[in-house]
């Protein structure tokens, strides 16, 4: 297992490298630039801005400098805070390295659209908000989706089945861009039960987490139902019943555990998508997360933010999938990776 995880981590480096090259290439192939304005900037100003952000250098140099700032650790004196040199990991070194020397690592660069702010600032300030919302939404999705799917499967073609699948049809077919403003208007403006927008208290979390989680729960419920129905027809379920295991035991220990496998497969990417923020839900509920940056960065050609957010998403996705594989092995002991 350890060997498997190590091998996957090495793969992850390769994946991240490929993602970074493709993203960098695509983003620079798109016309327009970070300083294209409705009121065009004069050439001298453009030149100064391009020089400041090294956008006047050859693309390959820009890529290497960018990746170097992220990957290569460095040691140097502490400096005045600067968006160009803001390291995720920075700490004072012992005196043997010289006076006032710091270890610095992982600099995702400045954002062009907010002067004086770095991509790391966005990670520090906005990423945790999205992560909280994402985890909450994930819990909502799982705690609605799995029981709904199980109830539907165990009561196939009864009212519970139709009810549960009806609910999940709503979840699948009503996009959050509809459900979010509707819930917001009803619960926030009309009934005044929960805050309309904002962030900071549990009350602020409920509506966005429910909106986001409910939409995902539908998918989980349908998968859970289909998978459980299939498992219930397996030989080992019949064997368990023949042995005289109580029906509740058959379902909990034999059917459910195996029935979860396909659900767990989708939970990895789902988790990655939820914790890295969502544009619509964050915008509608005024949640200061990272989701909106994915879109505005592309629109504004904010290259470091585009790179940073995509690498972040790719990283979370790869790690989530790794976790899924580990959970596989626990769910089904026949699966071994070594």
């Amino acid at each position: 297992m350890t060997k498997f995880i190590l091998r996957r981590l090495l793969w992850m480096i390769l994946v991240m490298f490929v993602v970074s090259v493709i993203t960098f290439g695509l983003m620079r192939a798109v016309p327009g630039g970070p300083f294209s304005r409705e009121k065009p900037l004069p050439q001298a100003t453009l030149d100064a801005l391009n020089a400041k952000y090294r956008l006047d250098e050859p693309l390959i140099v820009q890529y290497l400098v960018y990746m170097g700032d992220i990957v290569v650790p460095r040691i140097g004196p502490q400096t005045v805070p600067s968006a160009d040199e803001d390291y995720l990991i920075e700490f004072q070194l012992p005196a043997i390295f010289g006076e006032n020397q710091s270890f610095k690592w992982v600099n995702f660069g400045p954002t062009y659209s907010a002067r004086g702010r770095s991509v790391n600032d966005i990670f520090r300030e906005n990423m945790p908000v999205s992560a909280q919302l994402g985890v909450a939404a994930f819990l909502v999705a799982v705690s609605i989706g799995i029981p709904l799917g199980v109830a539907a499967a165990l009561n196939r073609n009864k009212w519970q089945d139709f009810g549960a699948m009806g609910v999940s049809i709503i979840g699948v077919s009503v996009p959050v861009i509809i459900s979010a403003p509707v819930l917001q208007y009803l619960v926030g403006v009309q009934w005044r039960i929960l805050p309309v927008t904002g962030w900071g208290t549990l009350n602020h979390l409920i509506l966005p987490a429910f909106t986001l989680g409910f939409a995902s729960s539908a998918l989980i419920a349908r998968l859970m139902r289909a998978s459980l129905l299939q498992v219930m027809n397996e030989d080992y379920i019949r064997t368990a019943r023949a042995k005289g295991v109580a029906e509740s035991g058959v379902i909990t220990f034999h059917a459910l555990k195996n029935g979860l496998l396909p659900v767990v497969t989708v939970l990895g990417p789902l988790f990655a998508a939820l914790v890295t923020g969502t544009f619509v839900v964050e915008t509608v509920f005024g949640v200061p997360g990272i989701g909106r940056y994915f879109v505005t960065a592309v629109q504004g050609r904010d290259y470091p933010v585009v790179m940073g957010t995509i690498l972040l998403y790719a990283g979370v996705l790869v790690i989530s999938n790794l976790l899924v594989d580990v959970v596989y092995a626990w769910l089904d002991p026949r699966i071994r990776f070594d």
């Binding site: 920075e90 004072q92 520090r124 990423m127 908000v129 992560a131 909280q132 985890v135 208290t201």
Partner: peptide, 25 residues
């Protein structure tokens, strides 16, 4: 230092949010 702050902020605020969190003024 910054790593710990980043990681801690994420975990702590997730926990805080679930526990009820700090009320906005």
């Amino acid at each position: 230092m910054k790593l710990t702050r980043f990681a801690a902020a994420g975990l702590m605020s997730a926990a805080l949010a679930l526990m009820g969190g700090v009320a906005l003024a």
